Computed example of a mutant assay.
Amino acid sequence: MSKRGSSATKTQAVFDRLHSDITSGRLTAGERLSPEDLKARLGVSVSVIREALTQLVAQGLVQVEHNRGFHVKNLSIRDVVDLMYARKINECAALRLAVERHDLAWESEVLAAHHVMAGLSMYAPNDPAHRNDKWARAHTAFHQKLFEGCRNDTLIDICRKLSESAELYRGWTTQDAPDSEAEVAANHKQLLDAVLARDADLTVELHTAHLQRTIDIMLARAGEADDADVAGEVGTTITD
Score class of each variant (00 low, 15 high):
Leu219Val: 14
Gln212Cys: 13
Gln63Asp: 07
Lys39Phe: 08
Val62Thr: 04
Ile217Lys: 11
Lys39Thr: 15
Cys150Gln: 02
Val64Gly: 04
Ala86Leu: 11
Asp157Phe: 09
Lys189Leu: 06
Gly25Asp: 04
Lys189Ser: 00
Ser76Glu: 03
Leu211Val: 07
Val99Gln: 07
Ala177Met: 14
Thr174Val: 11
Val72Trp: 03
Pro178Cys: 02
Val116Trp: 07
Thr154Pro: 04
Gln190Ile: 01
Arg170Trp: 10
His207Met: 11
His66Gln: 14
Gly223Ala: 06
Gly149Ile: 08
Leu56Glu: 00
Arg41Asn: 13
Thr237Val: 15
Asp226Ser: 14
Ala182Gly: 07
Asn126Ile: 07
Ala124Lys: 12
Ile89Arg: 13
Val14Phe: 01
Tyr169Ser: 06
Glu100Pro: 06
Leu202Glu: 10
Ser34Arg: 12
Val116Met: 01
Thr9Arg: 15
Gln144Ile: 12
Glu100Val: 10
Ala197His: 00
Ser2Cys: 12
Ala52Ser: 09
Gly149Glu: 07
Val46Asp: 13
His188Ser: 07
Asp179Leu: 09
Thr9Gln: 15
Ala52Cys: 08
Gly149Pro: 08
Glu65Leu: 12
Gln175Ala: 15
Val116Phe: 07
Ala166Trp: 03
Glu183His: 13
Phe15Leu: 06
Asp216Thr: 09
Val81Asp: 01
Thr208Ala: 10
His115Lys: 03
Met84Gln: 08
Ile238Tyr: 03
Lys73Val: 00
Thr54Tyr: 04
Asn132Ile: 00
Glu164Gln: 15
Glu224Trp: 07
Val14Asp: 01
Gly60Ile: 00
Gly232Phe: 05
Asp240Trp: 11
Thr23Asn: 03
Asp79Thr: 06
Ala129Arg: 08
Asp21Val: 09
Glu51Phe: 05
Ser180Leu: 14
Glu183Met: 13
Glu36Tyr: 12
His115Gly: 02
Thr54Cys: 06
Asp226Ile: 11
Ser6Ile: 10
Val14Asn: 05
Met117Asn: 04
Val44Arg: 13
Asn132Tyr: 05
Arg17Ala: 13
Pro128Tyr: 05
Arg68Asn: 09
Gln144Asp: 15
Ile89Asp: 14
Arg32Glu: 06
Ala86Arg: 08
Lys189Phe: 03
Ser34Glu: 12
Ser45His: 09
His210Cys: 02
Leu104Phe: 15
Ala231His: 00
Ile158Cys: 04
His66Phe: 14
Ala225Lys: 11
Leu162Pro: 02
Val80Ala: 07
Leu206Trp: 05
